[in-house]
């Protein structure tokens, strides 16, 4: 079967290039942080400014921002928006990854399939730093999740699985059409408000909620919050988790198929 052969090919490629993947992820991360004078500081300041803005709008401007299920709004916001920082960045980087790395496979024989992986891993390095800061803040406010913090590994992995599957599709489409990138930016802006990041899901009519839950980011953001703030175990929403993983599986297989179909044409599309 073609699908099976494709899967075997991709698994081989990743295994054979483990070292290259980790070194290129690190290189990618370092280029992003050292390209500006205060590179490392911006890693922290950019998200801090954004959180500050939303906090101001909601608590000072709109006079809402009441505590949510016993957690101050600002902490509730941080726990949900930090994974969102990863998603918005990784979705854009992922779709851009093959095009922006085209200078490599134009010049040397290169396993194109690892490009979305290391581009994504580089974004996860920033994510790890941000999560460490969130845990420090929670500790300071007396909301430290304790052993539940280990669940973050699971939700980070789930995020990775989703983002990688998506990247294999979007990076191929972005090669076919330069307009796709613009469309994707608008979709992300839309998704930001469609996912319960700045507003609590309780505010939503019960009839609409199931439709919003079709969005896999809903599951992930909810998972991060459950873990960081409410000590809900991984088994907290079994049906929703099942839906999420089936969706990821379908998305992943589709992504691999799209990638394998076009990977030999990428160099001719430039």
């Amino acid at each position: 079967m073609k699908l099976l052969a494709n899967l075997r090919f991709m698994a081989r490629e990743v295994l054979d290039n483990r070292q290259r993947i980790s070194r290129l992820a690190w290189h990618d991360f370092m280029v992003q942080t050292t390209s500006t004078k205060f590179g490392f500081l911006w890693q922290i300041l950019t998200p801090a400014f954004q959180i500050g803005t939303y906090w101001f709008v909601f608590t000072v401007g709109l006079r809402s921002g009441r505590p949510i299920d016993g957690v101050p709004y600002i902490l509730w916001l941080i726990a949900g928006i930090v994974p969102w920082f990863l998603y918005s960045k990784a979705i854009i980087n992922g779709s851009n990854s093959i095009y922006s790395n085209s200078y490599i496979f134009q010049r040397i024989k290169f396993p194109v399939g690892i490009i979305p992986i290391y581009s994504l891993l580089s974004a996860f390095l920033s994510h790890a730093i941000e999560l460490a800061i969130v845990l420090a803040i929670l500790l300071a406010f007396g909301f430290f999740p304790g052993f539940f913090a280990f669940q973050l590994l699971f939700y980070a992995f789930a995020s990775f699985a989703f983002l990688l599957s998506l990247s294999y599709i979007t990076s191929a489409v972005a090669m076919l059409s330069r307009d796709f990138q613009k469309l994707l930016q608008s979709v992300i802006r839309f998704l930001f408000f469609l996912t319960p990041i700045i507003w609590p899901p309780d505010n939503i009519p019960a009839a609409i909620d199931p439709f919003l839950k079709l969005n896999p980011l809903y599951y992930l953001v909810q998972g991060y919050r459950d873990t960081l703030l409410y000590r809900v175990p991984l088994t907290g929403h079994p049906l929703y988790a099942a839906y999420f993983w089936v969706l990821i599986l379908v998305l992943f297989l589709f992504g691999i198929t799209v990638h394998m179909r076009f990977r030999r044409n990428f160099v001719d599309m430039l």
């Binding site: 290259r20 070194r23 290129l24 290189h27 280029v31 200078y103 490599i104 010049r107 040397i108 290169f110």
Partner: peptide, 18 residues
């Protein structure tokens, strides 16, 4: 490879890519 990087860094990057 990368016009922003200097010669030595480009050597290293090329090595990593290969």
């Amino acid at each position: 490879l990368d016009p922003q990087l200097n010669g030595l860094e480009n050597i290293e990057l090329k090595g990593i890519l290969l």
